[in-house]
Amino acid sequence: MENYQEVLFGSSSSSGQLASYFINSLAITIPSVLFPLAFASLAAYALAWINFRGRDWLYIAIFALQIVPLQMALVPLLKFFSTGVTLGGVTVMPAWDLVDEQKFAQVWFAHTCFALPFAVFLLHNFISQLPKDLMEAARVDGATHPKIFRTIVLPLITPALAAFGIFQFLWVWNDLLVALIFAGGGNETAPLTVRLAEMAGTRGNEWQRLTAGAFVSIVVPLIVFLSLQRYFVRGLLAGSVKG
């Protein structure tokens, strides 16, 4: 237990301070799951059920963006935050200039960007399989798209949302690279993974404390996974039954 006490609540660089990083992880992960979920389901619905020109091409383009390695997106995105956007001398968006815990916003933004292509792919796969009759009946009744989305589609795709939610949760919780760049490494913003990676590099001789730390970081994803597992199964199920 002493190991746990020390890794959790010690306050020097060499002790764990994990409690602080744990809170950072939570603060990073929750919004980073919610934003892509909402945006991707809206987009996936539009791509599947609203008729407009070029929608198939747009979908394919978003799908293809999955391949862009996030390592190559780090520098431009960091520039976007630190210098803003200027087009032809006009400042379209000023620099963010965030300090301390405000940097969470950068991390949310980055994770949301990187998650969207896969999220749209997965949810589109699901939403486009919903019965056509259902949609047409609703349209005939005069329901608008937002209404159909809220009252018909959302309840039907809850399992898919839960499924993607788990994926995204696991990904963000376990992410190291994005956090390193956009959150920095201090105990004000860095998540558990960053801290553990540091401890792993320097604690060759003190495995017991590292394993205590590793355990703390694995417990949460396991709880989330085990409690949402049912949704996960059903979620992907419905998406893939019909061709």
Binding site: V75, I181, G185
Partner: peptide, 21 residues
């Protein structure tokens, strides 16, 4: 003084500098 020590220092420093940060 905001001190940050990182095991990824060599690669990350380049990313941060290029990124204007």
């Amino acid at each position: 003084i905001d001190y940050e020590g990182s095991g990824e220092f060599e690669a990350q420093l380049g990313v941060r500098v290029d990124g204007g940060n």
